Simulated scan of single mutants.
Amino acid sequence: MSIEVRPAADFEDVKALVGPKSPDASVCWCLSYRIPSKVNNTMRGQERGAFVAKLLEDGPLGVLAYDGDVPVGWAAVAPRSDTTFARNRKIPHVDDLPVWSVWCIRVRPGHRGQGISHRLVEGAIEFARDGGAPVLEAYPLDNGSAKVDLTMAYAGLRATFEAAGFEHAADTTSVLSGHPRVLMRKDLRPRRTAKS
């Protein structure tokens, strides 16, 4: 299997990963952290997909992993200031840098356990770096060796981000599926070399 990670710019491919099986279902569409709760809670059924299509007119909403032409994984990535994490009281702000956030990792059933989540995190790093992010943050579950319900593992796992070079920056008061979430960061700024 050859996995390629690309910006999530195609509506049908985004829909394949985060859209509902039934067009009228009111599933997340990965909007929960992208837009204010009041707006998110008022949308029903096909309104949600139409909203995502409109957002895509302004550019990709993260990255998708492809096995050939088939989208098999998704990672939501955006500037933190453009998400509800900008005002989230449970997840602290470490400093005033214009950081970006990666907050949802999803791999299609049948493709899990093949390292795709790791590839998505790598793709999220490149996407944020290409967008000018000085730092990329994630808010994964700190589950240790405990099993995590796959539905609630969308935030990612601490070990996955550590493997990609993220470092623990702060604890949070956020808990998901019984596991604490931690704030992990990866510095994307070019390294300065000492003058000889």
Rank of each mutant, 00 (worst) to 15 (best):
99 V>F: 00
100 W>L: 12
100 W>D: 11
101 S>K: 03
101 S>V: 04
102 V>C: 03
102 V>K: 00
102 V>T: 07
102 V>I: 12
102 V>H: 00
105 I>S: 00
106 R>L: 11
106 R>W: 05
107 V>W: 01
107 V>E: 03
108 R>K: 14
108 R>A: 13
109 P>V: 14
110 G>Y: 10
110 G>R: 08
110 G>D: 15
111 H>I: 08
111 H>Y: 15
111 H>N: 14
112 R>D: 02
114 Q>D: 10
114 Q>P: 04
115 G>T: 06
115 G>I: 10
115 G>Q: 08
116 I>L: 02
116 I>D: 00
116 I>W: 00
116 I>Y: 01
116 I>R: 01
117 S>L: 07
117 S>C: 11
118 H>I: 04
118 H>D: 14
118 H>G: 13
119 R>Q: 12
119 R>N: 03
120 L>I: 04
120 L>V: 11
121 V>T: 07
122 E>V: 03
122 E>R: 08
123 G>R: 01
123 G>M: 06
123 G>T: 07
124 A>E: 07
125 I>A: 03
125 I>Q: 04
126 E>F: 02
126 E>C: 04
126 E>I: 08
126 E>R: 06
126 E>Q: 14
127 F>H: 13
128 A>N: 06
128 A>R: 04
129 R>M: 11
129 R>F: 11
130 D>L: 15
131 G>Y: 02
131 G>F: 02
131 G>L: 01
132 G>Q: 12
132 G>V: 10
132 G>D: 09
132 G>H: 07
133 A>D: 10
133 A>K: 11
135 V>S: 13
135 V>M: 14
136 L>Q: 12
136 L>T: 06
136 L>D: 10
137 E>W: 01
137 E>T: 02
137 E>R: 01
140 P>R: 03
140 P>T: 04
140 P>M: 08
141 L>R: 03
141 L>T: 02
141 L>V: 07
142 D>A: 12
142 D>N: 14
143 N>K: 10
143 N>G: 06
145 S>I: 14
145 S>L: 15
146 A>C: 15
147 K>H: 15
148 V>I: 11
149 D>W: 05
149 D>R: 10
149 D>S: 13
150 L>H: 08
150 L>A: 05
151 T>D: 08
151 T>G: 12
152 M>S: 14
152 M>H: 15
154 Y>M: 01
154 Y>R: 00
154 Y>Q: 03
154 Y>W: 07
155 A>W: 01
156 G>K: 02
158 R>W: 12
158 R>C: 08
159 A>Y: 12
159 A>D: 13
159 A>I: 11
159 A>C: 09
159 A>F: 12
160 T>G: 05
160 T>Q: 04
160 T>W: 02
160 T>S: 07
161 F>Y: 15
161 F>S: 09
161 F>M: 12
161 F>G: 06
161 F>A: 10
162 E>V: 10
162 E>K: 10
162 E>F: 05
162 E>W: 05
163 A>L: 09
163 A>S: 14
163 A>F: 08
164 A>L: 09
